[in-house]
């Protein structure tokens, strides 16, 4: 055995005396744990609960039953509630955007009406459009009647 290994063994043996508890207060600690458990149970019992009742079932019948889905204030239920709230918020925002678009297009989904933004984009200030450019545009659209007069 090398010196290092031998010394490790000796250190290990000596370290067994490092921070050794004299006694283990099992009963005292259990009393504290039990009290904490009781307090938690009492807190849960007094916390408001949300009962989710299946459709078609009278609330008065379903609430006391163990079979009804119960959301209390435990951590897991909080998580479920937050997910539901987030989903509801997403649906609400999507509905708002949809209604907004629907109203701007007059309720026909924009099928019969050119989009205002596209129309605006094709309006070019006359000062910077040369007659040749205009003629090319008109040709491509097949609108020969709008040809400007040749200079």
């Amino acid at each position: 055995m090398s010196d290092a290994n031998e010394m490790d063994d000796l250190i290990k043996a000596a370290a067994a005396a490092y921070n050794v508890p004299r006694t283990i207060p099992r009963d005292e600690m259990w009393a504290v744990i039990e009290a904490a458990q009781s307090k938690r149970a009492a807190d849960q019992a007094t916390a408001p609960k949300l009962y989710v009742v299946p459709p078609g079932v009278a609330a008065s019948d379903s609430i006391p039953r163990a079979s009804s889905v119960t959301h209390d204030t435990s951590t897991k239920s909080h998580r479920v509630t937050w997910w539901a709230m987030a989903a509801a918020a997403t649906v609400l925002i999507a509905a708002g955007v949809g209604i907004g678009r629907w109203t701007t297009t007059g309720g026909n989904g924009g099928r019969n009406q050119p989009a205002a933004s596209v129309a605006a984009a094709t309006i070019v200030p006359p000062a910077i459009v040369s007659p040749i450019d205009s003629a090319i545009d008109a040709t491509s659209d097949g609108e020969r009647s709008s040809f400007p007069a040749e200079a």
Binding site: Y18, N19, P21, I24, R26, M29
Partner: peptide, 12 residues
């Protein structure tokens, strides 16, 4: 509990 307490005491 014994093992948990002993390790806690060693550390603390």
């Amino acid at each position: 509990v014994d093992r948990v307490f002993r390790l806690a005491f060693r550390l603390a």
